[in-house]
């Protein structure tokens, strides 16, 4: 957030050399994967050392999920609210509690603000947290957010004292509306949930990270490690992913890859990438080169 998005702009001009210089953090923050002088991620007044948030959907077993959480170094994980089956009650909660991660209940599957608000209120009762990943879906094939219902729900939940992390489209104006309503984090999609299609519109994502003050978390669409790294390079403060890990052939190994990717992307962002050029820029000086007779 609050860093130039010019690293995304393709230019040969010298004016582009200032891209993304402003390393966001001063020394002295919590130690974490992204460098010991990184201040860490602060959402709703809570500091996280990890910038990778894990969704729990799709894990083949709780054992694999637990190992994935550890490999990912995640400090927060999502959880859904569904009709209880007394036979399996509590087990996912036990895993998340044992892993020491903060619970982030979601409102997955809600199509209206009313439904999402009620789900969040129920989750608050069940999990004793006022944090919520607000998700209001507008279409069951793409699972794209319904902007109108999303804003209504966000406003109501913020007013009701919730710490709202809003899953949203990669639209700057909508993202700003969510920030203005008081959301603790804004979470634009890279591409549809579970698609693994990566970041469809890096330009839009860079605009959002540049213009918002609250943390921006890429949520949805990550397929592999480079997608997560790109999100961080574009200025995201964190990445939330589930399917890319839980449905990978080797989930625990992929969780480790994502952890490294998020850390690498964050470091690269803070390091300040070079501008993209159309033509080569010699990295070896031509001065002092031996001179020969031309062959032709």
């Amino acid at each position: 957030m609050s860093e130039p998005a010019s690293s995304f702009v393709c230019t040969d001009g010298p004016q582009a050399t200032s891209s993304a210089h402003k390393a966001g953090a001063e020394p002295g923050g919590v130690a974490d994967d992204t460098g010991s002088d990184d201040d860490g991620l602060v959402i709703g007044g809570v500091t996280f050392g990890s910038r990778l948030i894990l969704g729990t959907g799709g894990a083949a077993s709780l054992e694999v999920l637990e190992a994935s959480l550890v490999a990912a170094g995640a400090e927060m994980a999502t959880v859904a609210l569904r009709r209880i089956d007394p036979a399996t009650q509590g087990s996912i909660l036990d895993v998340l509690t044992a892993a020491g991660v903060r619970l982030l209940p979601n409102t997955a599957g809600c199509f209206t603000a009313r439904d999402a608000v009620r789900t969040a209120q129920l989750a608050r009762e069940a999990f004793a947290t006022d944090w919520v990943k607000l998700e209001v879906i507008g279409d069951d094939r793409t699972l794209l957010p319904d902007a109108v219902e999303l804003l209504d729900a966000a406003e109501e939940l913020v007013d009701d004292g919730f710490t709202v992390l809003a899953y949203t489209n990669d639209d700057l104006i909508l993202a700003r509306r969510l920030e203005d309503l008081g959301c603790a984090a804004v979470m634009p999609l890279g591409s549809p949930i579970g698609s693994g299609a990566g970041i469809n519109n890096p330009y839009n994502l860079a605009l959002i990270t540049e213009r918002l003050s609250v943390p921006v978390v890429l949520d949805a669409g990550v397929g592999t490690a480079s997608d997560a790294a790109l999100a961080m390079e574009l200025g995201c403060d964190a990445v939330l992913l589930a399917t890319a890990v839980t449905r990978a052939r080797e989930p625990v190994r992929m969780a480790e890859a994502m952890r490294s990717a998020v850390a690498a992307g964050r470091l690269a962002r803070r390091a300040g990438r070079i501008p993209v050029r159309r033509y080569a820029l010699a990295s070896t000086p031509t001065e002092g080169r031996a001179e020969w007779e031309r062959d032709r």
Binding site: G57, V79, L81, R83
Partner: peptide
């Protein structure tokens, strides 16, 4: 939760009992 003991059910009430599940 604090209202569970005081909330009596009536004939035909529709009750949803929800808990944690993997998701998100």
């Amino acid at each position: 939760r604090s209202a569970w003991a005081g909330r009596t059910l009536d004939e035909g009430d529709r009750v949803e009992v929800l808990g944690a599940m993997q998701g998100g």
